Computed example of a mutant assay.
Amino acid sequence: MAAGSGQLLLSPSLLHNYTRLRLISLPAHRKLQPLPYSVALGIFCVPTNSCTYKNLTVRIMTLKILVVLTLLNVVNGSPVVTVTPGSSSVDLSAHPNSVPNTAGEGNQTSNGEEVAVELLDTVEDVMATVELIPDHFPAQRAAHVVRHYLNTLYGSPYRWVGLQQVYSAKSEDVESGKKYQLEISVQEMISNTKEHCSAEVVFPGEEVKSAPQVNASCEALLKINTTAQEEALYEQYKTSQLSTNNLPDSYGHIDNSMKPFWQLGGVAASFVMLNESTENTLYNMAQVANVTQLETENNHLRFNYHILLHEMISQEIIHWKMLVTWAPAEGVNVLQTEQLPKCHECVVPTML
């Protein structure tokens, strides 16, 4: 405070505490990037592809940070010293950074520390959650992970889930990695059924090599009745030996009789794509290079699939082999997977 004025001055130590507060509220590995100076006191932003803080949120955060910093000055000391009327008995010969001792100071400092801690926790909570732009890469990659997860639960040759739209997405750092909260709509691409879903995806930290953890429920997908088509396909190929290549072909064409095996390949590919997904990948199946039916075992149709995955960030085409089983009552299972050497000359096939 300026003496007798009742106005708050932003001292050099206050600005120092602001910088210190920002540094301690972010993980050590993050870099800071200043937003335009028009934002009060230069609020900083962790650089992501969609770092979008609402203006109101920024203003609230700024106010809270200023209050915390003011209290930190009370606790830690400041070059700006308040002299009030009747304080002539205060010893001003002490070090210039010291706060004069006055009656009741101990209680004020203790209360200031408690309020500062509470406000600091509030600021950290606000800063921890980032609202993402739905159409941008961070939100899309998490939403596609949900799509792959749903295929592993509900997929069949006649039920193949695709992502339709991301309505909203938020991310936050958690102890186990980074968590995404999503509001999306998915589409069952054969019946054209659409459903709104809420989902949560947790990508593990870089040091952990495991699949993302997904929590989502879209039970309306189970209401799509595919029993008749699945039973007919199962009976047709129960004693057959299917073998075909290039779904789709170089012109983007898939024969109608082969579409169930293209769709089955897409569902099975979701098992691989879910397991391989990270915060830096975005997968889609580009082609079934080959599918060969094996002997039926335990009433399950068995297939060897050779698929091409398109990793859309690096633009790589990645070859995988899978041993896939399917029966109408048991659903799709992927028993074995093998990644083949990368093909740098491969071209993404033309899609329908």
Rank of each mutant, 00 (worst) to 15 (best):
V67S: 06
N225T: 06
V81E: 05
I317Y: 06
G205M: 12
S277N: 03
R159Q: 04
H196F: 09
K342R: 10
V130L: 12
P341H: 08
Y283S: 03
L119Q: 03
A329H: 08
S176D: 06
Y234W: 08
R22E: 13
I224K: 00
K238R: 14
L163H: 01
S277P: 01
H144T: 04
P12W: 04
Y283F: 15
E235F: 07
E316W: 03
L352K: 05
S87Y: 02
L222P: 00
N192L: 15
H310P: 04
P47V: 03
P212E: 04
P157C: 05
T350Q: 09
M351W: 03
V80E: 09
L352T: 11
N76G: 13
E338L: 15
L335M: 11
N107F: 12
E113L: 15
P212K: 03
N284D: 12
R302F: 04
T122L: 11
E175L: 13
F261H: 01
K54F: 12
N299W: 05
P349A: 10
N49D: 12
K209C: 13
Q293W: 04
F303W: 03
A329D: 14
E295W: 05
P341R: 08
S50M: 11
G177V: 03
A94R: 08
H144Y: 08
M127G: 05
P47E: 06
T337F: 10
S89R: 05
N256T: 08
A142S: 09
H148R: 00
S11E: 07
A40G: 13
E235T: 09
S171W: 00
P328K: 01
G265P: 00
V161M: 09
C218T: 00
L35P: 00
Y53I: 10
S78I: 02
G177A: 10
D121M: 13
I184N: 00
L222G: 13
P248L: 03
L119M: 10
V123A: 01
R20C: 10
L182R: 00
E195G: 05
N101Q: 14
P27K: 06
M1Q: 07
K209Q: 14
L14N: 03
P12D: 11
P138M: 04
K238S: 15
Y37A: 15
H95G: 02
P157S: 04
E124Y: 02
F271C: 04
C197E: 02
T122N: 05
L14A: 12
G6A: 13
T102C: 12
A128P: 00
V80L: 13
T337W: 07
V288S: 04
V75Q: 10
N280H: 15
I224R: 00
L41I: 06
I24R: 08
S217L: 14
Y158H: 06
I133G: 02
W262E: 05
Q7D: 12
V83C: 06
K223L: 14
Y149F: 15
I24F: 07
T52K: 03
T84D: 09
E188L: 05
L9A: 14
L26V: 14
L72G: 03
P100A: 11
H319P: 07
L309T: 02
L35K: 07
Q339L: 12
R20P: 03
C343T: 12
P79Q: 07
G162D: 06
S13D: 11
K64S: 09
N192Q: 13
R59L: 15
L233N: 01
P79M: 10
Q336L: 14
E206N: 14
G162W: 01
L132P: 01
